[in-house]
Design a protein around this nucleic acid. Structure first.
Lengths: 112, 112
DNA sequence: CCCATTAGTTACTTAAAGGTTACTACTTTT
DNA sequence: AAAAGTAGTAACCTTTAAGTAACTAATGGG
């Protein structure tokens, strides 16, 4: 408590807060391929529980990265889609992935 | 336990694991300006405790992002420096910051 | 009547992260 | 003798994240 001053001054930290959840990168990646239902997401994110998936989706929604549309059919159907804001994250995630793969290609990681 | 299969397949998640610690981005930012001693880092990272700073530095060192050099003088002196691998993160952090600032510039965030 | 289906929720437990306070080591300075 | 300075450690506590298992709602099908 009382240590969030830094956050406010550090855009990189705010971004990490947005995508730093245990499963958020994978969920975002799944949704980058298109709209998906709850059940479609869960089978594509191995070993996540329904409770945790629900939590992560709610947070992503609260942060404006995804939208949730509920159809009042039986059985229920809920669709999740990246918002424009969420889509704007995709190049960033690609960049992050690419950095990791490049670093594994051995350029500078064996300096120790 | 037993859910790390995904991590291994997701470079972006591995990167987040590297820089996702509560203070890592700030610490990396401080060190991007040059070699710093423990006491110099702590005054530049407001409200971090010595214990937590030590922990974060140890993790960054274990991940190969920074190096730690201890001088056996009195009083003690320890210097922390970004490795080449750590330096390779700087452009990525800039990119992440820039994305956040751009998104705040209002382009797509007001879609809700 | 009972089962399946979908998208959850509830209650509970465990693990990890973060934080506070006090203490240590060793030498120089007062 | 006591205090200052540096870089920590140790013991302990709190908060947050994550995970498990069982349960719900509403309806169609057998």
């Amino acid at each position: 408590m009382g240590s969030n001053l830094n956050m406010a001054e550090c855009p990189a930290m705010e971004t990490i807060a947005l995508i730093g959840g245990r499963w958020k990168v994978i969920i975002l990646h799944v949704l980058s391929k298109g709209t998906r239902r709850f059940g479609e997401i869960i089978v594509r994110v191995p070993s996540i529980s329904r409770k945790v998936l629900t939590e992560q989706l709610r947070e992503l929604e609260a942060d404006g990265l995804i939208s949730r549309v509920e159809y009042k059919t039986l059985p229920p159907k809920v669709e999740y889609t990246l918002t424009a804001f969420g889509k704007s994250l995709c190049p960033l995630l690609s960049y992050i992935s690419a950095w990791k793969r490049d670093s594994e290609a051995g350029l500078s990681s064996d300096s120790l």
